[in-house]
């Protein structure tokens, strides 16, 4: 329950910022993708059915504020959770550097995957012009990720949740 509350608050905060701030600053790529960072933290550090459901719920909440195909972000965020879960459970790697690297590629793959599923692979081939800004956003997200992981870890400690990977 504490895990659900913590991630619900962080997800709503992230979505509020991601919907309101682009209205203030004209250059969207400067804003990190906080939702992907949350999904990576869930996949790396919470090996439970609740965490998988949370990742799906965060993605589905994102669908309420982004895109035109409900379920698309839910799919991509659950996929990121699954990849992170596999990396941490099979390779036993959960370092911050790996987390930031996964965030970098996660942001790019989420974007391209969402375009491919919603508009087909032809649209992906036309998306070359958005790659520089996408790479910039991925880079900024990767830089911000360790700070978000650290804030999440402190919050988890404060409410008595495990910080390292924990199985049900």
């Amino acid at each position: 329950m504490r895990l659900i509350l913590l991630f619900a608050i962080f997800a709503m905060l992230g979505l509020a910022l991601e919907t309101a701030i682009p209205h203030l600053i004209s250059f969207r790529p400067l804003l990190p993708n906080l939702i992907v960072i949350l999904a990576v933290d869930l996949g790396f550090r919470h090996h439970s059915i609740t965490a998988a459901l949370l990742a799906f719920a965060i993605g589905y909440a994102t669908d309420a504020f982004a895109g035109s195909h409900p379920g698309l972000n839910a799919f991509m965020i659950t996929l990121i959770f699954l990849v992170c879960f596999e990396i941490s459970s099979r390779l036993m790697v959960t370092s911050t550097f790996v987390g930031a690297t996964v965030v970098f590629f996660g942001v790019i793959l989420t974007a391209l995957g969402a375009i491919a599923i919603s508009s087909g692979f032809e649209a992906v081939s036309q998306s070359g012009s958005i790659m520089p800004s996408l790479a910039l956003q991925a880079g900024i997200s990767a830089i911000v990720a360790p700070f978000v992981f650290s804030i999440l870890a402190r919050c988890k400690r404060a409410i008595g949740l495990p910080v390292a990977p924990a199985r049900e």
């Binding site: 998988a52 799906f56 195909h69 379920g71 839910a74």
Partner: peptide, 27 residues
Amino acid sequence: RVLLTAGMLLVLSLHLVSTGVHPGDLA
């Protein structure tokens, strides 16, 4: 269990994408 849950959720989200969510739907 985690892998299977995530897999089922992926299938569910793909189902939502392919069928679409209409106003008034539970989804």
